[in-house]
Design a protein around this nucleic acid. Structure first.
Length: 729
DNA sequence: GCCGGAAACT
DNA sequence: AGTTTCCGGC
């Protein structure tokens, strides 16, 4: 089965579909809708209206006609189209706004972020009008929706390993891509948009009534609507400097990593409003940063794109740095869940942006960007993004948003330069052998799960279960790799870890290229095995349930009282949340960002893990304001070790954060199982049900850190090993 | 108008 | 898989 996972990215199946991506021949309805929405010409037909992400089809027939034209389905009508839209309900891409005719609402959190991490949500939150269509202003010049598709994003593999590869890959795609429409031989080259940056949009369809199905008409009409490919620039932004093949370690300066050339992050905020960039979005991670674990994305090894490529790949420090940086950056840029950082405790979060430096760096670096020319009109840097009219007033056009205006970037605790260059020198390349993820726990438990639904959680193969951990095999990979790294030369982390397996993590074998041979195999057992699954709620962190007591099975209340009293239907709530403007991240979460828990000095071993989650991470990094004190002691901790720890914690976190998601999608059995074992998940909300403003107590996290003895013991051992190794650093 | 099952289509 | 088509039901 091919899914997003094939590419190595953690995407919900529905979100992936390369074929359906803009660049491919088939466009998906939601893409199309978004396209229309972003075009003023169609505002009389369909437009944003109402709440965030909500739009109204003003002229159903016309929309249907347009859609039909696009799909070469002259018989299309609103009834059919709406049926298609309804299919999105379960996928959570859309919701129907009840009571309002022809009104639907996008779930951009799932959709945009997952699919188009590059999209600039605009100033989002506050500045954006209610319906503020998360109109994605592309990272690039002009807003392109869908800026890219996961598939186009390139696999981490490619990126990390060699930008060059990335390029070629892009080139390849660009070369090939064109969207064919119903027209005879006519094909709509989506690339065009890149070229004209939206200029010359045509509405061929309109007015060509009747001709809807007509080849020429239909095709041409949308010609510029779609932007299928990710520009190189975008890619660079995503991954930091342009071509800097892994082969040239150290060639890139800190500034070179600039993901966003614009003065400030082009992704000021996630769609979720939040104080100062605090708009933390949850889990949906950038496809580009596939290594990041997401809670709702299934992991699927990709033979071709994923890091699992070939099932074996080598990793060197540079790559790691790059990856980490990208990850970090993405977290910041996309307002990802703080959890994303949990993995890299010691990592200093990159500064959102250093305009001058960045630009300089970027400029210098991106000579090869072909698209530059193409996008000429765009002026990406200028921050000239296409804004949806409705967004007009949004604070978008801030090439250099003042802090006041955009507190996020700088005020955000996360904003610390990532000093990758300062990674422990001793890091030597090591190989990771990735193996296909073991069957999810569900699988094991119930072999005969009903058909998998892509909606995050339900997929049988554990994709659902993978939730956060699995999201990206890679991220997990690291963790597991690292943890296992301490073992004998070649270890299969997954094999030793049941929890991991249950999580559906890919198996990874780490082959220390350098010296780690003496290490013992460490078995990392995670308590999270409880039920790492089916969670795909992206707002986990921000939802009330986060306040749930730590280290408990997610579905249970701390006091053991399971008495959920909230009135709403959990489903409803969740959905609502999802479709609602995101709430600001709970204060309590900040610590996560700021203080990278973990890391501990080697000597302390795992103790840190258990009790002191908030230790300051990188010695190089000044402790964030919010962070609790920090003791610079982790300097010498090998990345591997950090990862290991991070991973463990993450696992625990995951376990505690699970929550119910889309029940609709979930197989009945599954739900049943959950109910039985965990009690009502609804309870997770803790009765706090209030919604958005909820801020979970910081404690929650700490508690969740509690580690089972066995785990700590194991880890401890591993740690000891590592520490010995790195004693001298 | 809206919903969602079912089957067919690509 | 993602619709498209059809349709009965609310």
């Amino acid at each position: 089965m091919k899914t997003a996972g094939d590419s190595g990215f953690a995407f919900p199946d529905w979100a992936y579909k390369p074929e359906s991506s803009p660049g491919s021949r088939q466009i998906q309805l939601w893409h199309f809708i978004l396209e229309l929405l972003r075009k003023e010409e169609y505002h009389d037909v369909i437009a944003w209206q109402g709440d965030y992400g909500e739009f109204v089809i003003k002229d159903p027939d016309e929309v249907a006609r347009l859609w039909g034209a696009r799909k070469c389905k002259p018989q299309m009508n609103y009834d059919k189209l709406s049926r298609a839209l309804r299919y999105y309900y379960n996928k959570r891409i859309l919701h129907k706004t009840k009571g309002k005719r022809f009104t639907y609402k996008f779930n951009f959190n799932k959709l945009v972020l997952v699919n188009y991490p590059f999209i600039d949500m605009g100033s989002t939150g506050s500045s954006v009008p209610q319906s503020a269509p998360p109109v994605p202003t592309g990272a690039g010049t002009h807003f392109r929706f869908p800026p890219s598709t996961p598939s186009e994003v390139l696999s981490p593999n490619e990126d990390l390993r060699s930008p060059g590869g990335m390029f070629s890959s892009v080139a390849r795609r660009m070369a090939r891509g064109s969207v064919s429409d119903c027209s005879d031989g006519t094909s709509v080259n989506s690339e065009i948009e890149e070229g004209n940056a939206g200029a010359g949009e045509e509405r061929g369809e309109r007015g060509v009534s009747g001709g809807g199905g007509g080849p020429g008409g239909g095709g041409g009409g949308y010609r510029s609507i779609i932007h299928p490919r990710l520009s190189h620039e975008t890619l660079f932004r995503m991954y930091g400097g342009p071509g800097n093949p892994a082969g040239h370690p150290g060639s890139r300066g800190p500034t070179g990593h600039r993901i966003h050339p614009d003065s400030l992050s082009p992704f000021p905020v996630s769609p979720l409003p939040g104080p100062g960039g605090a708009g933390l979005l949850a889990p949906p991670l950038s496809p580009a940063l596939s290594m990041t674990p997401t809670s709702h994305l299934p992991y699927t090894p990709s033979p071709t794109l994923s890091p699992m490529l070939g099932s074996h790949f080598s990793f060197n420090p540079e790559d790691m740095k790059r990856y980490l940086q990208a990850h970090t950056q993405s977290v910041y840029n996309y307002g990802l869940s703080p959890r994303a950082f949990l993995q890299y405790p010691n990592i200093v979060i990159p500064q959102p942006h250093r305009p001058a430096a960045d630009k300089a760096g970027l400029t210098g670096e991106r000579g090869e960007r072909a698209e530059r020319a193409a996008t000429a009109g765009g002026g990406e840097r200028g921050g000239e993004r296409h804004h949806h009219p409705s967004l007009a007033h949004s604070a978008h056009h801030h090439p250099h948003p003042p802090h006041s205006a955009h507190p996020h970037p700088h005020s955000h605790p996360m904003h610390h330069p990532l000093h990758l260059g300062e990674e422990p020198p001793h890091m030597s390349p090591f190989k990771f052998k990735l193996q296909p993820p073991p069957p999810g726990r569900k699988h094991r438990d119930s072999q005969s799960q009903s058909k998998p639904r892509q909606s995050s959680m339900s997929s049988g193969s554990g994709s659902g279960s993978m939730s956060s951990t699995s999201g990206l095999g890679s991220s997990l990979s690291f963790g597991s790799d690292l943890s296992s790294a301490s073992g004998s030369g070649l270890i299969s982390a997954s094999s030793s870890t049941q929890s991991l397996n249950s999580a559906g993590l890919p198996k990874i074998k780490v082959e220390p290229i350098s010296d780690i041979e003496s290490e013992e195999e460490v078995e990392v057992t995670d308590i999270s095995d409880e039920d790492p699954d089916e969670r795909d709620e992206e707002f986990e962190l921000f939802s009330p349930r986060h306040s749930r007591p730590p280290n408990h099975h997610h579905h249970r209340l701390a006091n053991g009282t399971a008495a959920p009293q909230h009135q709403h239907h959990p489903d409803e709530d969740l959905d609502e949340d999802v479709f609602k403007a995101p709430a600001p991240p709970p204060p309590g979460l900040m610590p996560f960002f700021t203080s990278q828990h973990i890391h501990s000095n080697v000597h302390r071993g795992l103790a840190t893990l258990k009790s002191e989650p908030t230790e300051p991470g990188d010695s190089n990094t000044p402790p964030p304001q919010t962070g609790s004190a920090g003791s610079p002691q982790t300097k010498c901790i090998p990345l591997k070790l950090r990862f290991k720890r991070r991973w463990s914690e993450d696992q625990r976190m995951e376990a505690s954060q699970e929550e119910s998601d889309d029940k609709k999608v979930r197989p009945e059995e599954e739900r049943e199982r959950e109910r039985q074992s965990n009690g009502r998940m609804e309870m997770e909300e803790d009765g706090t049900g209030s919604g958005e403003g909820d801020s979970p107590p910081p404690l929650a996290y700490e508690g969740s850190l509690a580690t089972p003895l066995r785990v700590s013991a194991e880890l401890h051992r591993a740690t000891a090993q590592l520490s010995l190794e790195n004693k001298d650093c």
